[in-house]
Amino acid sequence: MNDDIAIMTEGLSRDFKTVRALDNLSLEIPRGIVFGFLGPNGAGKTTTIRLLLGLLEPSQGRAQVLGLDTRTQAQSIREQTGALLEHTGLYERLTVEDNLDFYGRVYHMDAAHRRARIQELLEHLGLWDRRKEPLAGWSRGMKQKAAVARALLHSPRLLFLDEPTAGLDPVAAAALREDLARLAETERVTVFLTTHNLTDAERLCRQVAIIRAGKLLAQGSPEELRKRSGGERVEVFGSGFTAELVARLKSHPEVREAELVNEHLLVTVQPGAQFSGITALLVGAGAAVEDIRRGKTSLEDAFLDLVEDKD
């Protein structure tokens, strides 16, 4: 495998009894990027992470992580990766310092390096002053920060992060996004991120993949996916927008979708469409158009288009 590829899967599938949780997933993720793995609940994201960490064996296909086979070299993979999974995985009877000290020992960090790294991470995340408190009394956001610190502790080459900003306040979430972007850019750490927060993914990920019911629907940069989803969102403000008018708009060749939202029209037009014809249709039908705002399709729109297309 090319050294510039962090993760490669070929026809990776996993069955649980009669249910196919992951179906023929083929991915190639370059090193040193933040990769967003997006999908609705039960899409197969967690199963994919478990397969890539060698915690589960694939039913079919194969995967390589950092050039190592997930079936035969799982322990070597786990040595070089850090993971924040579905749960924080912290020992809540213990303090954050004890938790990090334990995982530092697990990764054979020497005492001086371990202490320095724990202090560096806890200070950076604003948890240093509370390092002696048991985690049981902490808020969800603080525990999430502590879990991020644990995943980063041994400076892994590849990070698996399952919903890392869940429970974080907006300031902490923004700080984490910055940290992850910096890690990828300056230290060539690859970040495999699953999230429901598509704004996060759009801001942070150089590449994203969308899966649903175990099947890969699309992969590319957020920009490519937005373009692929096609269309442009246009909001029309004014009055006289009736259900009949919305129905006429929907049948217009340049309109992909139209709906009435809070007394204004939300129209998705075909790529490259000229809106003048649509405006003429609206005015001709007796509507009073006061303002037209054109906007780019967001990753969320692209995601919803892809996911709903398959329904």
């Binding site: 786990r78 040595e79 749960h87 924080t88 995985g89 020992y91």
Partner: peptide, 14 residues
């Protein structure tokens, strides 16, 4: 029960 098992298993420990 306390959801720490998977993280432990995802570590380098044999």
């Amino acid at each position: 029960e306390r959801h720490t098992l998977e993280t432990l298993l995802a570590s380098r420990l044999s």
